[in-house]
């Protein structure tokens, strides 16, 4: 218990929390959208994020981008990594839907079964990076953590009081918020987005109105996957690391963020993510970083006990305006 450490560095901790929280929020979008449309927790979503971080590493390696690179190269590498990670994650998410969920939907299987296939998919994806690829290609695949050196150099942009704001923090928070605004506009303003909302509100009526449910579901997985891929890029920029099982803990936190904000609610994911990030950083300042991971679980249990619909309320269909 060390409240002084928290009070002394309050500004810095808050900023750190917002940075982490915006990554959680991006991953949370995937949970929230799938839940809104299908009413199921896509357990394999954490691994979709993990694939994103590895794709970023691949792009850096292929382009030869590292901390020595010149400015044009840094921008090019980061943008390429952004697109590649979003594409890779979206394809993995889509593959999971096709292989694990669609056959079960046709059989009208109980929700439990979806969760179990999702866990299976998650195991398979984790093991592909933790073992299978290692057998074929050797390092960096395997069970050891891997360094992902971001070409973006950290430097302080401005100092307010004793809070230093770095370019990386600004990039991550702005990037995440921009992606979410874009997604929110897409779901609320575009024709395809209207389809998503229709299926979320009432799948049967939506089908009668000519909305192709399968296509909406695919779209939702693609969008959620792309967001997780971008989150993968932002994560590697902030933490410079990836690992075969990195998705698990991020997935739990993102899910907590989604539930905290109100699962199925896009703006709730943002609020929940930022809030959870801050709470977590505060908690690790007061206790110790050993306890940071427990915070998310405790927040989750408390939210589910006292306000299971989350802060902003459930439902993708209703959460509009």
């Amino acid at each position: 218990m060390d409240f002084n450490a928290l009070i002394d560095g309050l500004g810095g901790h808050t900023l750190d929390g917002l940075t982490r929280g915006s990554i959680y929020a991006l991953v949370a979008l995937g949970y929230t959208m799938v839940y809104g449309v299908l009413r199921l927790i896509n357990f394999a979503h954490s691994e979709v994020f993990m694939v994103g971080t590895w794709t970023v590493l691949g792009v850096y390696t292929v382009l030869g981008a590292d901390s020595e690179s010149a400015m044009p190269m840094v921008i090019f590498a980061t943008l390429t990594a952004l697109v590649a990670a979003a594409l890779a994650s979206a394809s993995v998410a889509l593959a999971v839907e096709r292989i694990a969920y669609r056959p079960l939907r046709k059989k009208n299987a109980p929700p439990l079964i979806f969760l179990i296939t999702a866990i299976g998919c998650s195991l398979v994806l984790v093991e592909i990076f933790g073992h299978v690829l290692k057998v074929f290609f050797g390092a960096p695949f395997g069970r050891a953590p891997v360094n992902v050196p971001s070409p973006i150099q950290t430097h302080t942009l401005l100092t307010i009081g004793d809070v230093r704001i770095t370019n990386v923090q600004v990039f991550i928070i702005l990037g995440a918020v921009l992606m979410m605004v874009a997604l929110d506009l897409f779901v609320n303003r575009s024709r395809l987005g209207r389809g998503v909302r229709a299926v979320a509100q009432d799948p049967d009526t939506a089908a009668l109105m000519g909305v192709n449910q399968d296509r909406v579901i695919m779209l939702v997985f693609i969008l959620g996957g792309a967001m997780a891929g971008v989150a993968g890029l932002l994560f590697t920029i902030n933490f410079d690391i990836t690992k075969f099982d990195i998705g698990f803990i991020i997935g739990i936190k993102a899910f907590t963020a989604a539930v905290l904000g109100g699962i199925g609610n896009l703006r709730g994911a943002l609020v929940g993510g930022l809030l959870l990030g801050i709470v977590e950083v505060y908690a690790s300042a007061v206790f110790s970083s050993n306890w940071a991971d427990v915070t998310a679980f405790i927040v989750l249990v408390l939210v589910l006990m006292f306000r299971p619909t989350g802060l902003l309320g459930e439902s993708l269909g209703k959460a509009r305006a």
Partner: peptide
């Protein structure tokens, strides 16, 4: 033995999809 978790993952998906 190193393939164990991978095999379980595949088995879980396969069994649940083919024979839930």
């Amino acid at each position: 033995q190193d393939w164990r978790p991978f095999a379980f993952g595949v088995a879980m998906v396969a069994v649940m999809v083919l024979r839930p």
